[in-house]
Design a protein around this nucleic acid. Sequence first.
DNA 1: ACTGTACCCTGTAGGC
DNA 2: TGCCTACAGGGTACAG
Length: 293
Amino acid sequence: MPELPEVETVRRGLEPVLLGATLRRVEARRPDLRFPLPERFAARLEGRHVERLERRAKYLVAVLSSGEALVMHLGMTGRFTIETPTRAALLGEYVYPSGADPKHDHVVFHLGSGARIIYNDPRRFGFMVMMAEAERNAHPLFKGMGVEPLGPELTPDYLARRAAGRKANLKAFLMDQRNVAGLGNIYVSEALHRAGLSPDRAARFLSDARGKPTERARLLVPAITSVLEQAIAAGGSTLKDYRHADGERGAFQECFAVYDRDGLACPRPGCTGVIRRMVHSGRATYACSKCQR
DNA sequence: ACTGTACCCTGTAGGC
DNA sequence: TGCCTACAGGGTACAG
């Protein structure tokens, strides 16, 4: 579900409620998500303030007054929903406007304000980890992680360096979080279409014999940044589960050029191709065989 | 070192 | 109606 634009949208939705808030009480309704919840999970959170709410790749990071960071990943179906006292009273204890099933409410954060932030995740591919904030970048989750695609480090030179000599195709190369961190199945397909690059093209074609970026690498950078920026502006893409922190759906699915559009006409002006679904590393990829080379 | 596959888990859609 | 299979935004542990 949540790729970078979705996680960033959730972050922006949670920030006004969470920033400066006290975690008055934390309920873990089961001992694990994808992995066991951190040792003494509630005790390490309760009574702390949230000093910052950041995003790194597809991770949400709450920096706490204790000096620890609570790192959260939404997996495929994780969602955070804010329940204010007023809304809870209006809607009833467990009525979600977004239709989430309360049986998958796994973690509940009760804030000093009386608001609750509920983590719901039917498939439980999400997880939460705690670590010292000062050591976050050295933690195995973040060490070796690729660049932020919307940061200054995503350049044609960087892509060329990472891709030099690599036989893997561009789909796999861009899905690999060690290269670019935050892209997922939707936005890789969309970015490759914008760049006019085939997902089957070997990554090494992003660099020339001297390891310098080719035209393909120069096309890829703005393709990635533009699709992510537009998706964030649209509040992300809602296929099924993904919702904003207030239960709203994203809108960027209306703007897909290729994703989930098998058999439809390529929307690129002047292109007469047809979008085809294919599979790379067991995941669906969508591309136009005419304008993506 | 790299690449591809199976797997974690639940829900849903489509074929019969 | 039910049963079965395939598939879904992610990441990881393996085998080769």
